[in-house]
Design a protein around this nucleic acid. Structure first.
Lengths: 250, 250
DNA sequence: CGTAGCCTACTGGTCCGACCAGTGCACTAG
DNA sequence: CTAGTGCACTGGTCGGACCAGTAGGCTACG
């Protein structure tokens, strides 16, 4: 006590510092999507490391979704536009190793979608309303075509609402969680005997939601959207998880 | 048209298949946290690839937070328990490259925290209520100590609420987004001249929220928690973003 | 003169062999 | 029985090598 407070030295791997530098360049905007990194052989000169080290750094950057390399490309790795792929990957991992239940996922979707509708009722433009109209029309047309087309139109509707919320975080999380949920249940829905009735019911619910959004009644839109999602998925959620879902419905 | 529909062949890198196999083993539970992978030199034998390839695969797995290697460790890489670190990383990247505004982040926290409170009002145990009581007591005690202690107690309160919601996704996303927000504003709060008044006001708000949770009034708890967060952060949100935040307040 | 096709100079993907600084464990000397 | 010392192994890094693939310039043909 009393002496100088030494901090434990942290050994930093060479490849980590390369990752940091490139990451900083990308996140600060010095490197924009579409631009190219120098070739691996150039980079080993610039960083004064071996190619193995450069490559390990590039692997990490690629795993984070920041760059992409293609064999034979005369240019170096390409800086990628942001995509939620990495977010999606880690959330999917989370869902598997933490054993996220379908109930939790659906509950989260109810929360996000309701919030998106609440905001959309306030902030939507007429153009976005038209997109939602078009999506519902597509849903109606898709009932005859098949579940895949219906699901695509359904997604388009929810995406339009999410965009109208003007919150990118809501948009992206909605997208990520939805794809995980659909990965779990889409097979079951497609195989359900009464799927046509389900689809028609869902369309009616979506129309009610849209009417509330159009009228600017955010709380109503939020409540209806929660109910819509509950009705659509409750059949696939185990009995014991349903009360937690219903807790969101008042 | 009419001929057999060929699919484009996707060349799969060797290291990717190693990643897939190890990932599968971990996510399926065949490899549990704390267990060790074989050494890199063993793995090159098992997968019939060179060590460089093994190492690139391990770098990817490490970037995803699934394993961790330590130089000198006589055992191989250690399988890690899930941590939201990877999720945090990709969301932080998202916040930077997509230029997520503080307004969007705070709005998202309002949504998550309100939902957590809504659920907590229904599902909380007496033990969790006690934790929330303790956290508020700590907040009160910390006003004299300093902002860091206050912030820690504040986090403890919100964590207790999130746990009481019994939704791991809400817990983790709350945690991740909160740390990003605090990274943006904690310096400003600590330097604010009227921070003591802000802290006292915040404590009062938290007490009201807790009372609603204790009474089982979910909608009230949700509304109060939104207001609490709004009041706490609105000073740091640009004027033009505030209407979107207020849209959540009715 | 225009174009089809080849050639070359690169790229990234993979392999090999080597060295170093650490770590844990068994063995040994006290 | 313990304290200390090697040793055998680890991951981190290096350098060189080869391969398959690509793009773009060059050539030769029409």
């Amino acid at each position: 006590m009393g002496g100088p407070r030494f901090e434990p030295v942290r050994t930093v791997r060479a490849y980590e510092r390369i990752v940091e530098q490139v990451e900083e360049a990308i996140e600060s905007g010095a490197l924009r999507p579409g631009e190219r990194l120098p070739s691996e052989r150039d980079l080993m000169g610039q960083f004064s490391v071996s190619r193995s080290t450069v490559r390990e750094a590039l692997r990490v950057l690629q795993a984070r979704g920041l760059v992409r390399s293609r064999p034979g490309d005369p240019n170096g790795a390409e800086v990628q536009p942001f995509s939620p792929a990495a977010l999606h990957k880690s959330m999917t991992t989370l869902a598997r190793v933490e054993e996220l239940s379908l109930g939790e996922l659906v509950q989260f979707r109810m929360v996000l979608d309701a919030s998106a509708n609440l905001l959309a009722a306030r902030l939507r433009t007429d153009e976005q309303l038209a997109e939602m109209d078009a999506a519902i029309a597509a849903m109606r047309a898709a009932v005859e075509v098949g579940y895949d087309a219906f699901s695509a139109a359904d997604i388009a509707f929810h995406d339009a609402v999410a965009r109208a919320s003007r919150n990118k975080l809501i948009q992206i999380c909605t997208d990520v969680v939805r794809s995980i949920v659909l990965g779990l249940v889409s097979g079951k829905i497609a195989a359900a005997a009464d799927r046509e009735a389900l689809m028609r019911q869902s369309i009616g619910h979506h129309e009610e939601v849209l009417a509330a959004v159009r009228a600017g009644d955010g709380p109503l839109a939020a409540r209806l959207s929660r109910q819509t999602m509950y009705d659509y998925y409750v059949g696939y959620v185990p009995e014991e998880e349903r009360p937690a879902l219903r807790a969101l419905l008042e």
